[in-house]
Amino acid sequence: MSNEVKVGLLAIAAIAVSYWGYKFIMGKNVLLKSNTYKVYYPKVDRMQVGTQVFINGVPVGSVAKVALLNDVDRTVEVVLDLIPEMTIPKDTRAVIESTGFMGGKAIKLMYDKPCSGDDCAEPGDTLEGEFKGLLDSMVGEEAVGDYATVLQKSLQRIVDTLNYALLSENSQSPIAKTIRNLDATMANLNSSTAQLDQMLRRSSGNIQASLASVESITGNLERNNARISAIIANADSLSSQLVAADLQKTVNEVNTSIQELRGTLENANKAIAGISGVVDGINAGEGTLGQLVKDEALYRNLSNLTREADSLITDFQDRPYRYMPLKSRRKVERYDRQDLQETGN
């Protein structure tokens, strides 16, 4: 036998052993013939394939399939795989129970008596399904009432203890203090209400007299309604007259201001007319200013005179020695030569 054939056979054997081991871990021995039964539940609470099936605490099989049917109620179909030699009656109930607080599940097969012959269920039959909650699974149906009684008594003792610790007269808890303060507040409120009632009783006569006075005043107002209306009308007319008088006074003041403004404008027009006449005279050549404007020869003479005066002033500033008295001609010429040498001319 070649090495390739040996390796192939070894691989096939390894795959077969792995498949058997996986099925065995999931609770099914593929080397043994098994019986399968169907059970339908409204819910299974996260039960998985491989969940153990027990009879009186002894494992007799496992869950081979969990499937959700596509019906109206979304029923769950569970297939149970039991060992070959196991026989169960047709009226067997497959009860799902919780095995602990961590969510573990198991199926317990329950029936009244063993079967024989035609009373036994055939492989592929459908069993009755039942689901138990955590409390029923842990303590059983017969002990639920006892546990409920014990729980009720324990809760009652806890409530009594809390009531004494929080609400008793000697308790210093914030709740007890608040309740005592509320009782005191209610007592004060009742006392204040009683005092107010007595005060109203004593003052009922005064209140009635005050109401009578108010009624009398209202009657007088109703009887004198016409007079009051006339007074209001007269007040309205008087206020209208006052408004009209103030408006007439304002109009008179405005008219006076307009007259004064008109006089000021007339004086301004006269002044402007005088200035216009002076300008016309200047344009006509009247007076000294007019001759200066109109006579070009006079303008040129004044311009030449201005130029010569400016030259004389400039020469006086530059050569003041020429205009000093008692200076000889010879000194003046020497100064002129010095000025020429300094200026480089």
Rank of each mutant, 00 (worst) to 15 (best):
L10P: 03
A11N: 15
A13M: 10
A13C: 08
A13K: 11
A14F: 06
I15D: 09
I15A: 13
A16N: 14
V17C: 12
V17Y: 10
S18Y: 03
Y19P: 04
Y19A: 14
Y19K: 03
W20K: 10
G21I: 01
Y22W: 05
Y22P: 00
Y22N: 08
K23C: 06
K23P: 03
K23T: 03
F24V: 10
F24L: 13
I25C: 06
I25P: 02
M26Q: 08
M26T: 12
M26F: 01
G27L: 03
G27I: 00
G27A: 01
K28P: 00
K28E: 15
N29E: 06
N29D: 13
V30Q: 13
V30G: 15
V30N: 09
L31M: 11
L32E: 14
L32H: 06
K33T: 13
K33A: 15
K33M: 14
K33R: 12
S34L: 09
S34D: 08
N35K: 09
N35E: 07
N35H: 08
T36K: 12
Y37E: 04
Y37A: 04
Y37Q: 02
Y37P: 01
K38S: 12
K38Q: 11
Y40T: 00
P42N: 11
K43W: 05
V44L: 11
D45T: 08
D45A: 09
D45R: 12
D45H: 07
M47V: 02
M47G: 07
M47I: 02
Q48W: 06
G50A: 04
G50S: 05
G50M: 01
T51P: 00
T51D: 05
Q52K: 15
Q52P: 10
Q52C: 05
Q52E: 11
V53I: 15
F54E: 11
F54G: 03
I55L: 11
V58L: 11
P59W: 01
V60S: 07
V60M: 10
S62C: 04
S62M: 01
S62R: 05
S62K: 00
S62T: 02
A64S: 15
K65C: 12
V66S: 00
A67C: 06
A67M: 10
A67P: 00
L68N: 11
L69P: 02
L69Q: 10
L69M: 04
N70K: 04
V72F: 01
V72A: 12
V72G: 07
V72D: 08
D73C: 04
D73R: 10
R74F: 07
R74C: 07
R74Y: 07
R74K: 09
T75N: 05
V76W: 08
E77K: 05
E77Q: 10
V79L: 02
V79K: 03
D81N: 13
L82P: 03
L82M: 03
L82A: 04
I83A: 15
P84R: 12
P84S: 14
P84V: 03
E85D: 13
E85C: 08
M86A: 12
T87D: 15
T87L: 15
T87A: 15
T87H: 15
I88N: 11
I88V: 12
